[in-house]
Design a protein around this nucleic acid. Structure first.
Lengths: 218, 218, 218, 218
DNA sequence: ACTTAAACGAGACGGTACGTCGAGTCTTACC
DNA sequence: GGTAAGACTCGACGTACCGTCTCGTTTAAGT
């Protein structure tokens, strides 16, 4: 129980994070993002990151267990504005981020999903996010971190917006908002990752339309 | 020019597939599938495959460009019954495979998607398919092959079944069957790959229900 | 110039030996001797010495330029009774150490060389002395210190004893005592270092006999 | 047991020396000798040897266990004329090497030892031989190889020459030629390795004189 | 006794080299 | 000419120590 942390520490003398060099940390994260843009994830190496950052390899190994972990931190810390899968709406300073709520669910969803599409099409998001997703597929521990830190926040906002619509009586009580979240995100993610078809605003609109209004004739 | 073929040959003396050893081919594919089960994709190496198959490394490099390509072939050739993302319905010998069509679209979809869920939960499918998906995310060429050979066939069948329903007047003309295919497959794939929640028959049912009948109150 | 000291200080702020921690010094020297016995010279590291001594690495680097220098001090300060290559004879407290002089040169030499043989066969002498010799072979500066502090004193005593014999008329004036010293020490050192044959009392006796009485028939 | 070799082989799949690349072997040995001259033994690294030789590090590790072993081979194979501690006399083609035997032992010994002195003073011999001696002091296994392959042959020749003198009645039967060998080589080696005094032809002569004619007055 | 500057323990840092692994190519002997 | 075997060059791995550089914390000299 309380020993668990102690055990972990006993494994390999945990470094003292108070003495950590912020300069080195920033240089490493920046280098990782630069390099993934220049050579792609598979050819990204810890040695290259260290060299670009002007840092000893050990300084990377001291604080991260793998290049994927470095990249996850780099991606998350990007510009000090960590982004989720879907962009938050307004982030009124100090307040909780929330999705737009104009009362028109369809319009709001389309707005948000079009934003997500733009993000997925932007190399600065696509490259690292795609690499981290790929790594996570095959490495469950990293995958869990990626989902929790990158994806969950956006999905949670979406679920909240849907619950608001449900409270407003726009959605029946028999519909599970969490299922709806996946119903609209799943298809976008599918296209983004698998590249089966172009990922466009039109597609985002079509998904929202089809999902919201149903498929079977009434 | 008549030299075009010669040029190609000059690039890398194309091997003569007529003389290819079927014994070696099978041994390599079998070894790849065995080893991915034993050590996982990231630790799978071409050297290990060659050793396990009792084959020289060059024999692998002669016929495949990467370990992912070997695995794709191994996965595809599995039991001589290459499978797509969703299981085919009956495959009456000699005939085209097709999804069940009882006239009840909802029931048919649930049947098919439950089968897909079972498959995704089976390690013999999950491990290689997940590895190939991951590789494909980051390696577009391989990704395209994977989609075309593994995923597309299943998706096409689904689209056909939906078009049949449309022809039967169960689905409006304003709905695009291709979008519907992704609307039901996207969420399943999302859960399968990202492990956000358990992937169960109940979830498959919920996706079908929600997608078919719509979200907004009528 | 008065600046000479200042220059030196400017080079690398010479530490103030008045404030030096005797506790740390002893701990370092002890740790060095312990560790060379446990893991041998090549695997002896400054980090290990610091850890064993409970001392910061900088405390070692402040006072010694290399692990060999530490070991040389450790060896020299051993038990506060620094030993030369050959054991001193009686060390009447306060007096100069001198070799035994019974008037019988042959017997005296055998006694002294047998003592040297015993020392070379004792791990507590062999390990550090051998390591320092090895280091000195390849690092002339350290080698000079090692010879001056460890070997020379013993050799000088031997030379004095021989000069006494010469004064007593036992040795001809045409013989150079310094050559004789090497004539008896060389062979012992040869066997000790190169391990060509066992280093025994009998060998010491044989060397003395052969050297003193000559090789050619008279 | 006959299994001993098999056991050793079982430890780590012994490489097939029939397929060994002679080109790589020569390049490695040459590079080792070049580099020890350029930077000295302590700063000689396997990586540098590999780089200079245009060879993968693995090719070195495949055939040698340490940089010292490489150097020993390099030194031994030098110009295809491996040299011992003392220079061979004439090596009439095809015949056994032997020391000069003019009937005058003293003159012959001086000739040989002056040659040895010259060799020890030549950097091409001094650097590698000194480094290997140093390594051998601290690594008994390597030391044994060094002695057997580099030193022993020369010492054996010297012993044979002395036995010839003994057979000719120039040396008494009570004198052990092996002790005499060390009596003359020991002092030279002592000066060579420890740099206590300059190593000159005069010293070689003095050693021979003193050793042959004895120290005590007759 | 109080101040204060240097030595101290600790250990993070930028580096170099280690010894290993696997990639992909090349060579040899066999069929 | 395809194959099994495996040596080759190359690049990266993750680790070990190097010697330097902060960090507080003693600690001993000089007020």
């Amino acid at each position: 129980m309380a020993d668990k942390a102690a055990d972990k520490a006993a494994e390999k003398a945990a470094p003292d994070s108070a003495r950590r060099s912020e300069r080195a940390r920033r240089a490493i994260l920046d280098a990782a993002l630069e390099l993934i843009g220049e050579m792609g994830y598979p050819r990204l190496t810890i040695e290259a990151i260290a060299a670009r950052a002007g840092v000893g390899k050990q300084t990377i190994y001291r604080w991260w267990p793998s290049k994927a972990a470095v990249l996850l931190d780099a991606f998350t810390a990007q510009g000090e504005t960590p982004q989720g899968e879907t962009p938050q709406g307004e982030t009124p300073e100090g307040g909780e981020p929330a999705l737009p709520d104009t009362g028109d669910l369809e319009a709001d969803l389309k707005l948000v999903l079009r934003g997500a599409v733009d993000q997925m099409n932007a190399p600065a998001y696509d490259l690292p996010a795609r690499a981290l997703t790929a790594e996570g597929l095959v490495n469950p521990e990293l995958g869990a971190h990626f989902v929790a830190r990158v994806l969950e926040p956006g999905l949670r906002l979406l679920a909240e917006r849907l619950r608001a619509a449900q409270d407003a009586g726009q959605i029946g009580r028999d519909v599970d908002p969490d299922v709806v979240v996946e119903l609209v995100c799943g298809p976008l993610t599918h296209r983004w990752l698998l590249r089966t078809h172009p990922l466009s605003h039109d597609y985002a609109d079509a998904v929202v339309d089809t999902a919201l209004r149903g498929i079977l004739k009434k």
